[in-house]
Design a protein around this nucleic acid. Sequence first.
RNA 1: CGGGGUAUAGCGCAGCCUGGUAGCGCGUCUGCUUCGGGAGCAGAAGGCCGUAGGUUCAAAUCCUGCUACCCCGACCA
Length: 491
Amino acid sequence: MSDQKITPRAEDYSRWYQDVITEADLVDSSPVRGCMVLKPHGYAIWEAIRDDLDQRFKATGHVNAYFPLFIPQSFLTKEAQHVEGFAKECAVVTHHRLKATPEGVIPDPDAVLDEPLVVRPTSETIIWHMYGRWISSWRDLPILINQWANVVRWEMRTRPFLRTAEFLWQEGHTAHATAAEAQEETRRMLEVYRDFCWQTLAVPVVMGVKTASERFAGAVDTYCIEGMMQNGWALQAGTSHFLGQNFARAFDVTFQNKEGTLEHVWATSWGVSTRLVGAVIMAHSDDEGLVLPPKVAPVQIVLVPITRADNQEKVMAFVDGVAARLRGRFRVKVDDRDNMKPGAKYFEWERKGVPLRIEVGPRDVDNHAVFCKLRTEPGKFSLPADEGLADAIGAVLDKMQAAMLDKALATRKARTHRVDSYEELKARLESDSGWFLVPWTDDAENEAAIKAETKATIRCYPLEGQEEAQGRTCFYSGRRATHMAIFSRAY
RNA sequence: CGGGGUAUAGCGCAGCCUGGUAGCGCGUCUGCUUCGGGAGCAGAAGGCCGUAGGUUCAAAUCCUGCUACCCCGACCA
């Protein structure tokens, strides 16, 4: 395999990110600009994320459904803010047939669609069109639907996982009888995301509210979870929107309440995407390659037999026995390739982010033990290969998962800076990248001015700690502060 | 979409300036020996040089268009 091809983080952080992904064999580029192929090892991370979240959605009363990829163009025009937000990045289908010509194949001029179809950039419009047909009474509410789907946003500049033209995601779309109920749903799902990121991804995201300029096109309020990457930049890991009655009005979706009067329906939508895979990679990996928390690692344990011709049978029988004992509880791989030396296998699985490696040689067979190495710790240790092995390994992996969260949390805390003046922010953005927590007076023009000058944006008004703004003055305008804001450079 | 760079075997590169029909390392295949931190030897396979044109007796090499990728900006999950 390749030799030390991962650029160190300190040298070039984006090259490092690129290298880690390539070396771990997560994706391949596609012939179409901005699109990526998710290779099995990369897709498996998404599968683990999807399966975990799907359970959480179902546990909070949601059901899955599927809405079509194509949306009539006219639907996109119905909600004014929504059009403005998405019009610039939509792929549009205009023909339904190809035609062979001497110059090659072209869209058949005789097969132009009456109305062009937009490839969904998000599904609010088609879903609210359908909800209009399904809702007439308060008894039809709430509707709590989620869908797992792909969407397309024609992005100018792309990065694997973090921003691609087509990406996989889930979008929850709920319909409620009251504003309070919809707001509660918005916050409930935000909390689902937060807990998932902390517990499953070991990424200690912060929950917050977006300012008007960062709000979802068509939302009344946009909540978000923001994660800090190792270079101190922020990454929006998920959003949950309170849509008010905007889409219900645009698509004329009303219900008859218990008093018999017609009201517009209240809405939410919430989503996370394959960007989460990028967040996990960036949050935990090191200069040796991918590091994954055990809960989402496609392979949690790799067994590497160390054999010679005269002991191969003995060692392999032992390895197979250990693997059989661990399968069913863990995702286990036995690397029995005979064309690679054990050392080469160690490097390969380290690059690929396998949390626990178990080396088994003749000495271990004789001792009835296995020799273990954690991806995140320097030393190796031996465990008895008895009935308690699976429990012992479970404990080790749980501890690793918790340690990864602690480490990421410590980094986030160390790199969250409180500053009181704009001068200090500008100076420290260069020297000391991270998040900057400041007292702030909500003002879109000032926000834009700061972004233009520093490239830092307001990631959110964090839900926790807003009371700190009481009685303080805005670090930029000197006016009475309305919020505590997190400024940071972001992906 | 603006500025810059790149495109030659699966991967990383040389060859291009000074045109003459393609080479190196790694990987792959076969065999033997190896195997507790990136194995050794021997043999072999694999590329109409991103793509479409142009110049020329002749193009990987010179010229033009297009496409993709990377870096930096503006837009965004």
